[in-house]
């Protein structure tokens, strides 16, 4: 079977799998099955991050993203974000349940001292405790809202990031989340919706991909490749540089030991590529999303 090969047009977004697959939660829809016990990928050490930030300057990287697992389990996460804000804008994808106020205080000071934004994307997947906790774990709804309020108290404007696996048919989803946030004191709610990626834990909870859900060469005719994460991103892990933060469990997604080794084209041979193809701009923030013209 032939798969389209996607060149890296430019490395706009450099991701760091900063806490590997280690998370304080064990969400039943996690596409890389993160949990307190999943050490497939470990924490990135500080020097690896520093080296990659330095290397990224010559490559002209535009933005930096941090994900896991739960990034704030990393013992040096505050320091890592402070360092990153000297290089460019930073976004951290968090479940919002482990913040300490003194971390947020330091991070707000670091953002104020920087030209660049420090964005927090906080995951919440239901607008009721029942819907959210069924995916993210008992009691997480209230803990996530507490995290959102902590961010607001420090002057951050978090982006609530929603994978609505339990609300997929609700046409008023956006408004319901807006209302929830407003009721929790967030007067300018920001939201990002993500599609379900049917791999990892989600393949067991819901369904896996159907065989026909693949990207074929014919499907690329007239399609803007900039919509695909692999066209403008790479992710640094403790096991090398991978093509995107979604395909960590695919052996061919590991492209090299270093960034410069990982700039080769990538074949869309995996079924999550179909979701990326369908939705486009899966991982970026709204302020930076690549758009068709």
């Amino acid at each position: 079977m032939q798969f389209p090969s996607i060149p890296l047009a430019h490395l706009d977004d450099l991701w760091f799998q900063v806490s590997g697959t280690v998370c304080n939660l064990a969400c039943t829809h996690c596409f890389i099955s993160c949990s307190p016990h999943n050490h497939s990928f470990g924490f990135l050490d500080f020097e690896t991050i520093r080296t990659n930030l330095e290397e990224s300057v010559a490559l002209g990287v535009k933005e930096y993203y941090f994900t896991g697992g739960e990034p704030f389990l990393h013992p040096r996460m505050t320091e890592i974000l402070e360092l990153t804000l000297r290089y460019g804008p930073a976004t951290v994808l968090t479940n919002g349940t482990v913040f300490k106020d003194h971390w947020l205080q330091r991070l707000r000071a670091a953002e104020d001292a920087s030209t660049y934004s420090l964005e927090f994307r906080v995951s919440m997947d239901g607008y009721t405790p029942e819907a959210n906790d069924a995916l993210r774990g008992h009691g997480t709804f209230e803990r996530i809202l507490r995290g959102v309020r902590q961010l607001l108290d420090h002057g951050f404007l978090p982006i609530l990031t929603v994978t609505p696996a339990n609300h997929e048919d609700d046409p008023h989803l956006f408004e319901r989340f807006v209302r929830l946030l407003r009721e929790n004191g967030y007067d300018r709610p920001r939201l990002k919706f993500l599609p379900t990626l049917r791999i990892g834990a989600e393949a067991k909870r819901g369904r896996g991909y159907d065989e026909h859900e693949r990207v074929t060469p014919e499907m690329m005719i007239g399609y803007d490749q900039a919509r695909l994460v692999c066209n403008h991103s790479r992710v640094v892990t403790d096991r090398g540089v991978y093509v995107c933060p979604i395909l960590l469990e695919a052996p061919d997604a590991r492209l090299g030991d270093s960034l410069t080794e990982a700039l080769a084209p990538f074949a869309l041979a995996h079924q999550p590529c179909h979701t990326c193809y369908q939705y486009g701009a899966l991982c970026a923030n709204a302020s930076s999303r690549q758009r068709d013209t």
């Binding site: 430019h10 490559l59 535009k62 460019g88 660049y116 934004s117 900039a226």
Partner: peptide
């Protein structure tokens, strides 16, 4: 220069990227 509807905001555009452009 590379895309008509790309947003280049002050707080989300690194100097390294501008040098690249």
């Amino acid at each position: 220069p590379r895309q008509m509807n790309e947003f280049l905001w002050e707080s989300t555009t690194s100097s390294a990227f501008l040098d690249y452009l």
